[in-house]
Design a protein around this nucleic acid. Structure first.
Lengths: 349, 349
DNA sequence: AACGACTTTGTGAACGCTCACAATACATAA
DNA sequence: TTATGTATTGTGAGCGTTCACAAAGTCGTT
């Protein structure tokens, strides 16, 4: 267990025959260093295998090179326990990590209970101990005004994912309403006139925005709204199955169903099967989440895929740029993707 | 943007009328502090909202309160791009986070290309900059001897997940071979005699161990091995479908198939459907991964579920205990779960 | 040749904590 | 009592950086 002495900036300075500060300038890509000197220092860094200590940099008053990603504990737990999983975390990790790495940053995850009264307090604590250069708020934390206020108070720049009510912050989102409209239009173009949107929960801003998008598209196509246009599936399989069972057996049943997430889309597939309705011949189905199972479902679901990785990468990029001096504010819309697989076709008849 | 002055240990000391060091003792749960004084200090901490700075603690020569989790970049990328996703990352995050939080620790994720020649170098860099109190190596990094050697050299304790060749390190794993045996026995008990194991890749230690477990169980049941006992599906859908198509159309086709992961199990379901074989009446299928889609597949797959969250939590716990002085070594086996759903039944006939 | 203006380099202090050790308080035994 | 030990508290130094500023070097002008 021979704990070799750590290589410090002083060692590099000595080796290159300059002072600490000059080495520091090179590390931080500062200006005003003679090319020859810079090169000499870089060589010394390389040969000594020097890597600056994050803690020391932070202590010195510099940046922390840390971006904090705050996720909802409940959601993570739900996904995990239900074996439901989604690629949200996978994607976050990939998108965020990759971007951070480019700039020598690190990503720290933290789980906070959304809606908990002391969420702002919990966040303060984490911030105080980590002192990250930026914070990423994922839904539903991004909707939490108290939390955002707290971060402002602490002076930590934050990026809100999936939030698009501009208020001077940094927002990165996809056009949920537009996606819902596009999905509806895709079906309408195929000839469908009786569409049903299985909504998630009106408590989620994005869920609401999708319903609005759906309504806008059907209205524009001159389709009258009725009691079966928008139903609530509560984001889960069971509720959706219960709601759909009578509907799909009724005479004027819809010819196409849009589900707000995959569990509800799968429920639709199951109920259709139970009712002897073939998909897509007798019923078109589209999902709004595109989690893993989707591609192997029978038949493979047509779905909207959220650009999670790109959203997180964008947030990291902006936050890092902010730490480097650029102001961090503005709205950035990341394009989604409609992936047409095998559950959409012309309506029957 | 009123950046209030940070509350430091000095402020607390002043408020409580003691010295820095005494406050430090309270924070670190050190002994030898009079109950009355301890209480006074705790009150001061509470009322000032003091949270110690991790960087400063680390600088002072103490712990970093950071655990580094190293994942394979390629695997994360694959999962993400394929939309295949798995709950591996979800579970890691949940299990690790929850355990770390209990002890005031934080989890930092890092993506490193498995097998890359400079993986040890990359890891050194991250370690040097973060100085974590412990490192968690996930497969296939946990099989990388060079990496482990590097960590030893750096004096950073590490936990290897899914690795069970004891070599004085800290290993946390599940009994892959035993699970494969149990799965085989489950089928044999139902009356099956013609079983096929669709293996993943012999390059993966765990994949090998499962094949061995499968063989042990069939051998014990007096079932002779033939060319169709173990086939290679290369962990993917297409290869598996190609391999299975002729097999399931042959006369002496297997009555049960065990797939090394979900994609291969789904492929089995598809091929069976194509061949007009009903599951589970005509063919039993078991998977070895239990990713999200599984529970909604038609019919829902019987599968082995890996205790990922618990393994990571265990690793965190041991590493944190190690930072507190306890030696970190030993092997810890975490129990898996066989989740019986609807794809296993008595063999036909 | 000397001045000013800019570029490049160096110095001391500070960041907030823990370490090692010194100092004091308190208790127990002789 | 006094000595001796143990429990409790305090002090100076140091961790590896960056900051703010001071010092030295470079260059073109006059």
């Amino acid at each position: 267990m021979h704990t070799r002495k750590t290589v410090t900036i002083e060692d590099v300075a000595l080796a290159a025959g300059v002072s600490r500060q000059t080495v520091s300038r090179v590390i931080n890509q500062g200006p005003n260093v003679k090319p020859a000197v810079r090169q000499r220092i870089e060589a010394a860094i390389e040969s000594l295998g020097y890597v600056p200590s994050l803690s020391a940099r932070r202590m010195g008053g510099g940046k922390s090179f840390l971006i904090l990603a705050i996720n909802d504990r409940q959601r993570t737990l739900d996904n995990w326990q239900a074996g439901r999983g989604n690629d949200w975390v996978d994607q976050m990790l990939y998108g965020g990590m990759t971007e951070c790495e480019k700039h020598g940053y690190h990503l720290v995850f933290e789980l906070i209970d959304a809606g908990a009264a002391d969420a702002p307090r919990q966040v303060s604590r984490v911030i105080a101990s980590l002192r990250p250069d930026g914070v990423i708020l994922t839904p539903p934390h991004s909707d939490d005004a108290a939390l955002v206020a707290k971060l402002d108070e602490l002076g930590v720049p934050c990026a809100r994912i999936g939030q698009r009510e501009p208020n001077g912050h940094l927002d990165v989102y996809m056009d949920e309403g537009g996606a819902a409209s596009e999905v509806a239009r895709h079906l309408i173009d195929l000839g469908h006139r009786r569409l049903t949107f299985i909504a998630g929960s009106p408590g989620y801003g994005n869920s609401r925005r999708r319903v609005e998008g759906f309504r806008a598209a059907t209205r524009a196509a001159g389709i009258a709204e009725d009691a079966a246009s928008v139903l609530n599936g509560d984001f889960n399989f069971a509720t959706t199955a219960d709601v759909l069972m009578p509907l799909l057996q009724s005479a004027g049943r819809p010819t196409a169903i849009i589900a707000d997430n995959d569990a509800m889309a799968f429920a639709t597939l199951h109920v259709a099967d139970r009712c002897g309705i073939a998909v897509p011949q007798g019923l078109s189905v589209i999902s709004f989440e595109d989690t893993p199972g989707v591609r192997f479902s029978v038949p493979p679901l047509t779905a909207i895929r959220q650009p999670t990785a790109r959203m997180i990468a964008c947030a990291c990029e902006k936050l890092i740029a902010n730490a480097a001096g650029e102001p961090a504010a503005g709205s950035f819309e990341i394009p989604y993707e409609l992936i047409v697989r095998a559950t959409t076709a012309k309506p029957p008849g």
